[in-house]
């Protein structure tokens, strides 16, 4: 008798109530149609973000609300989950994000992104470790990657290595943690993300006319499409790549995304479709009555919501046409 999953009963009940407060498509449409960034922010202020928006002095500082919201969401779900270690797997991605930001700030002198106070490692300690080039306090795998990055950068001066090495550690850890947890949904999500990242790498390498060795280096292991099959596709024209993927789940999104990429020269459509694909996959959390799946689905839903708010506000601040914003908006979870 599967009794064990009912330990999530409280957390799932609470998540169901939280889901009703996620922003729906109509809200985003109204934000997109608003006449200015300030107006869009006002529309946002009519939702669950009312308090945060009321305290925001200037629309240009909207990132602070988003970071606070993300942190609040993770803190809450961590607190109510009877198995917080499963939620920590999701938070791991932010440790890596923060490391990337810190490394780029150190080596390139640019603050590429905000540090996000979600994740298991303390930001101060990480900052200190990166600045002093002393990674003893980091978990073993991260430490290895960090040391490799600082060695490699001294020799090659190639900032791409930061993203590359840290992504590899990240997905390694995610896959192992997900397998350990026995939660199929988590493993499925990460495998799909790896596949999509690898397909994007393939197309990027192909478009830039780079060689097979480089592609081999940047492909992530553990995907459902073997890496040698992906490197094999490098010599085929892009059209046959789409034919080869017909049998897989990714056929539609790759063919549409790639067509758009070739036409417009940006991968933004493919990025959107990839996110939508993961959202559709995680939506099973909405129908799962017990277990961690609804919590994971909610976390992802919140991440997508935050991404959407950022897309709209950045678009509004830069006065992009509504249509350009609309086509980048991700599908919502609810």
């Amino acid at each position: 008798m599967p009794i064990d999953d009912t330990i999530f009963a409280y957390a799932v009940g609470r998540t169901r109530a939280l889901e009703t407060r996620l922003l729906d498509r109509a809200r985003f449409e109204r934000m997109i149609d608003a006449s200015s960034a300030e107006e869009a922010l006002k529309v946002l202020g009519e939702s669950a973000y009312a308090n945060a928006v009321a305290e925001l002095p200037d629309v240009h500082d909207f990132e602070t609300i988003l970071a606070a919201e993300l942190k609040e969401t993770f803190d809450l779900i961590l607190k109510i989950s009877p198995r917080p270690e499963l939620i920590s797997i999701m938070a791991l991605r932010y440790d890596i994000h923060n490391l990337k930001v810190l490394f780029k700030a150190k080596y390139l002198g640019v603050k590429s992104d905000l540090l996000i106070p979600v994740g298991s490692l303390e930001l101060d300690k990480m900052e200190l470790a990166v600045n002093e080039d002393d990674y003893r306090d980091l978990p073993a795998r991260l430490r290895k990657a960090a040391e490799n990055i600082s060695e490699d950068f001294l020799v090659n001066r190639d900032p791409q290595v930061i993203d590359l090495l840290l992504d590899q550690v990240l997905y390694d850890q995610l896959i192992f943690a997900a397998r350990d947890s026995g939660i199929k949904l988590l493993e499925g999500m990460f495998v799909r993300q790896i596949d999509l990242t690898n397909l994007k790498s393939l197309i990027r390498v192909k478009r830039m006319g780079l060689d097979r060795e480089l592609l081999k280096n940047i492909l992530l292991p553990h995907g459902s499409i073997p890496t040698d099959r992906i490197t094999g596709m490098l010599d085929e024209p892009l059209e046959s790549l789409i034919t080869m993927l017909t049998m897989s789940d990714y056929a539609d999104l790759v063919s549409e995304g790639v067509r758009d990429w070739l036409e417009k020269g940006t991968a933004s459509r493919l990025e959107k479709l990839s996110d939508d694909y993961i959202t559709a996959y995680l939506k099973q959390g909405k129908w799962t009555p017990f277990g961690v799946e609804p919590l994971i689905g909610y976390l992802w839903a919140k991440e997508i919501e935050i991404k959407n708010i950022r897309l709209v506000l950045v678009g509004k601040i830069n006065k992009l046409p509504a249509e350009a914003i609309r086509e980048r908006i991700r599908d919502v979870y609810i």
Partner: peptide
């Protein structure tokens, strides 16, 4: 007792966010 207990937990989760229910 087990059945009522499961529903109670789930309901408490919902009522935390929405006491009207």
């Amino acid at each position: 007792a087990i059945g009522v207990g499961i529903v109670g937990q789930s309901a408490a989760g919902l009522v935390t966010e929405d006491p009207d229910k």
